[in-house]
Amino acid sequence: MIELGLPPFLLLSAFLFACGVSCLAVKRNAIGVLMGVELILNAANLNFVAFARYNPAFRVEGQVFALLVVVLAAAEAAVALAIILNFYNNHATVDVDRADDLRG
C-alpha cells in the first residue's frame, strides 16, 4: 500500500467527478441527475478518505467528514426523491427540461 501513494486515488476521484458532472449535463431524467450528484459526492468522499490515509494530520478528520457526507447524501437523496415524486404527481413527468415553472 505504501508505494501506491495519493495520486491514483485523486485520479479515480477526478474521474468519478467528471462522470458525475456529465451525468448532470446529459440526463433529462431527474433521477438520473440525482445519480450524478451521488457520483460527485462519492468523488469528494474518496478524496477525504484518501487524504485521511496519506496525511497524518487528517487521520480522524478525513473519516469524520466522509461519514458526515455519507449521512448528508442519504438525506439529500430522500429529499430529492420526495421533490421528484411531488413533481411527478403534478406534472406526470420527471423530465427536468419541463421543470421551468420558476423561469425568470
Partner: peptide, 16 residues
C-alpha cells in the same frame, strides 16, 4: 457534456 467532463477531468488530473 462529454467535452466539458473531459476538460474538467483533465484539469483535475493535472492538478493531482
Amino acid at each position: 457534456g462529454g467535452v466539458r467532463a473531459a476538460a474538467l477531468f483533465g484539469l483535475l488530473a493535472a492538478l493531482a
